[in-house]
Design a protein around this nucleic acid. Structure first.
Lengths: 128, 128, 128, 128
DNA sequence: GTGGTCTAGACCACG
DNA sequence: GTGGTCTAGACCACA
């Protein structure tokens, strides 16, 4: 499910973190669902358990996951996600838009791209 | 003008780079305008000149500015900016939108935010 | 393997960069192979590690190698090399040929030299 | 005749040097022909005479020019050009070819490009 | 132990 | 005075 690229400049734990978050955001992992144990996932990806542990901890701090001692880690509800995460994403959105406009990308192009992304998301949520 | 955060995971030179790029994109720095000298900006931000130089170098590679030895560094024309930069920004745009939608932000909210950003940009270009 | 000339106008890091690239192009360093660590090569060449790092960084941007923090630097696949590099080399080719013709070098001499270089390259690729 | 680019990373005197050499190589300036005086060219290009002086000196060292005290500077015969210049150009030729082959450019493409460059040169020399 | 970042201080070429 | 290069030495994150 998660692809690791050892040649990537990003550290492994961050690739795991982003990969998991993408699975959650895309709906591949539903809220409440149990994640593989740290050891299981470490074995699957053939990397050190410490690296997985770090990714889980980071996602827990963002609110995407919660852990229950002795039970495992689970996907959190959307409403649980840290609100600062949203601010950060909005800032990222603004920065990208501002620079794209500066580079001559048309407002209409961006609006259309936004609409397409929204449509895709709706479709996925309609029939998961 | 540029705020540094030593606790941030992002390296200083990247914060400087992004800060300067933002000033260019926002129109605070106009094409052709001279930037502060490496030493001057280093002194202002209370960091080492080498760090500033690194930020300038990176921005030069992106095409946002150009440097002339013995003369100084200057803001480049929009058309000089590296074309691959746009692809990277579109990817950033998509990623932010996808996650924001998941977090419950409405399509309409994003569309409105986009429209406002566009309006601001037009206004600035109309009366610089 | 790499020879440095302190009297040369070209900066050291560029001499290192070109030397390494030549080793890759000549097949002395094969794709996937690990390069000496920054510190090791700095020690070998008796120069500062920062200078080596700069050469590695530049080659990474050209796509000739890739670095993984904590692991080391490795030779990249041919297909990874930046495509704009080819344009620059063709320009270099044209400039050299034009001036050589002016200086009285015969077309036949250059054609033969070209053929020999091609033959050498084929031989190396046939039996690495 | 010579175009200066203040935004170029190359120093001005080198742009002048390369520009003049190109004029000689292309046949625009014929052997024996008198070059503009340092002061005249400095005035034309609107730059410091010292800069022109340095370019002339460098070209004189390469053998492309010779100066006669009180008379001016003149384009030298082809045979006067420093032989090390030819070696350097051949090395440049080899390096470009080797790397182009490595990047997958076909031998035939390079041979054709060489032939075309030779043809252009012949045409120019036939009817200057 | 590795690459990545940063500092402090120095010298050089350029115009 | 400017950008560009280099050195020496330091600390950090990563796996």
């Amino acid at each position: 499910m998660i692809s690791l690229n050892y040649r990537d400049a990003r550290p492994i734990y961050e690739q795991v973190k982003d990969g998991l978050r993408k699975l959650v955001v895309s709906g591949a992992l539903q809220p409440g669902e149990k994640l593989p144990s740290v050891r299981a996932m470490a074995s699957t990806l053939a990397i050190n358990p410490n690296t997985i542990q770090r990714a889980y901890e980071a996602l827990e701090r963002e609110g995407y996951l919660y852990s229950v001692a002795g039970k495992g880690s689970f996907v959190a509800e959307r409403s649980e996600v840290d609100t600062t995460r949203q601010d950060s994403l909005l800032a990222q959105f603004d920065a990208a838009v501002s620079e794209l406009l500066y580079l001559g990308v048309d407002e209409q192009q961006l609006a259309q791209r936004l609409a397409e992304l929204c449509k895709k998301t709706e479709d996925k949520e309609a029939q998961p």
